[in-house]
Design a protein around this nucleic acid. Structure first.
Length: 285
DNA sequence: ATAAGCCCCTGCTGGC
DNA sequence: TGCCAGCAGGGGCTTA
């Protein structure tokens, strides 16, 4: 599923019951997802208190009071369900990991991780070494960080001959963007996704940074985008998929006033680096 | 160093 | 109706 808005929606869903909670039990229903599940979750986490839930890029970090941090990546199809410990059961297909915990107010909860494609994973690191975790060591700035701006993008991509679409999917350039929001941000900024990253002017990068932040914020306000698998922890869907300008809209008309006539819609689908790109060749140059 | 291709896995959709 | 190719919010690994 999950790009920054979807991952942050999940993090925000977990936080109210988990923050300050004491973990009672961890159950693993299979040995591995994309990678082996850390068996240490079963032995090292029960009786420990959850101090914080953080997000970095598309990763969720859960900090425990004994100096361990659980790192979760949702892959393409990962989701959590949270509910009362007595009522919510791990009985769906693809329920792989279950936590039982007592919230700060004394109520007993369970959280179940479900992932049909099993591209997600769990890992455990010492909290004080989390920044050195392989996925984070070279990760680019968060989009909401002031360090993410046009000057940064221009400098970071000055030597890149890759198309801007592909460059923005690189998590070492900027954290948290994925296929949907890159397409949407490039549309809003009016930049052709095929354009070489190193040849784009700083002013256009300024616009791109502003529009990327805006589209992410709007998606966040909508609970993310649900195409198939993305769910909030209460099972609710996101709504931003109804507000896509170009993503998954091949053959339709974009909002550009100059694009409202003709036999066929202006929005094209092409493949870049094996992934679909949706864009309007009229609006995006 | 950078970039492209392949792969992991299940489920759904569209075309025949 | 049924079958199957193609495609899906990601990213790590290998190869050029």
């Amino acid at each position: 599923m999950p790009e920054l808005p979807e991952v942050e929606t999940v993090r925000r869903g977990l936080e109210p019951s988990m923050r300050g909670a004491v973990l009672n039990e961890v159950r693993l229903y299979r040995p591995n997802l994309r990678f082996d599940l850390p068996q240490d979750m079963v032995t090292l986490l029960p009786t420990r208190r959850i101090e914080a839930l953080r997000r970095r890029g598309k990763y969720i970090l859960i900090d425990f009071d004994n100096g361990w941090t659980v790192i979760v990546h949702l892959g393409m199809s990962g989701s959590f369900r949270v509910g009362a410990a007595g009522a919510l059961k791990a009985d769906h297909a693809h329920d792989h990991v279950q936590w039982f915990y007592t919230a700060a107010d004394g109520e007993n909860f369970t959280a179940i991780y479900n992932d049909p494609r099993r591209f997600g994973f769990f890992d455990m690191v010492r909290s004080d070494a989390a920044a050195d975790y392989s996925a984070f060591a070279a990760m680019g700035p968060e989009p909401f960080d002031p360090a993410f701006n046009g000057a940064y993008l221009k400098a970071r991509l000055a030597a890149s001959r890759a198309p801007i679409k592909q460059a923005l999917l690189d998590q070492s350039v900027v954290a948290g963007l994925g296929n949907i929001y890159v397409c949407e941000a490039l549309y809003r900024a009016g930049i052709d996704p095929r354009r070489k990253a190193g040849a784009i002017a700083v002013a256009r990068y300024e616009a791109l940074a502003v529009h990327a932040v805006a589209v992410l914020n709007e998606a966040l306000d909508s609970g993310g985008s649900t195409l198939r698998d993305h769910r909030a922890v209460d099972g609710g869907t996101g709504y931003f998929q109804h507000r896509f300008d170009v993503y998954d809209r091949e053959g339709l008309f974009c909002a550009n006033p100059d694009c409202q006539s003709g036999e066929k819609g202006c929005i094209k689908r092409i493949v870049q680096a094996g992934r679909s790109t949706f864009f309007c060749p009229v609006r995006q140059t």
